[in-house]
Design a protein around this nucleic acid. Structure first.
Length: 177
DNA sequence: CGCATTTGACCAGCGC
DNA sequence: GCGCTGGTCAAATGCG
């Protein structure tokens, strides 16, 4: 399931003042050359409302011992996942600041890929939007960003016209769903 | 001092 | 049924 049908034209993007912001000043380089929206096909299929996408998988009382009583054996019909929207971005940095604040919560090495995949989550309270960033082992210059869910709050940091682009992204998402 | 990042462990789903 | 891979959590650490 690591085969996104990347079949979108990589044109456009007049780009202007691409001002990215990173927590790390060393990453202040913005090298976006083109964005390629990719449709990430889910096996789940149907999509429910995002409003109730609670991550109820919090049943691990303790790590090691964890005799536990509450077993996460209730997830049944809630298996439906939200649609994901993948974007292929040509960038030197994988940290693309789209205006939201993300908190990294994991990093895994993917097979068939020399580069690890990073998992981010929107730090906004109540916003369960996730995103994962991975780099193509084939093209080190290509970064694939996969968004999961939609933000239910305005952008925190105003961006020049980057917001416009973000807006386009959302339009695309709507179109795909 | 507060918050974001790091990193290892754990878990669930899927494939063989 | 076992093993592998992907995904997430949580404690510790670092940085602003």
């Amino acid at each position: 399931m690591h085969n996104y049908p990347t079949q979108f034209p990589t044109q456009q993007s007049s780009s202007s003042s691409t001002s990215f912001r990173s927590r790390h000043p060393s990453h202040r380089s913005s090298n976006m050359i083109g964005i390629t929206p990719v449709f990430g096909s889910l096996r789940g299929g149907s999509s429910s409302g995002f409003s109730g996408l609670n991550d109820e998988m919090r049943a691990r009382t303790s790590h090691g011992d964890a005799k536990n009583e509450i077993k996460p054996g209730k997830k049944k019909e809630n298996k439906v996942r939200k649609p994901r929207y993948a974007f292929q971005t040509r960038s030197q940095v994988d940290i693309l600041d789209d205006g939201y604040r993300w908190r990294k919560y994991g990093q895994k090495t993917v097979k068939n890929n020399k580069f690890p995949r990073s998992y981010y989550r929107c730090t906004h309270q109540g916003c369960n939007v996730k995103k994962q960033v991975q780099r193509l082992s084939r093209d080190e210059s290509v970064v694939v960003t996969t968004y999961e869910g939609v933000h239910s709050h305005p952008i925190e940091k105003p961006n020049d016209n980057f917001e416009d682009m973000l807006n386009q992204m959302q339009i695309y998402s709507n179109f795909w769903s």
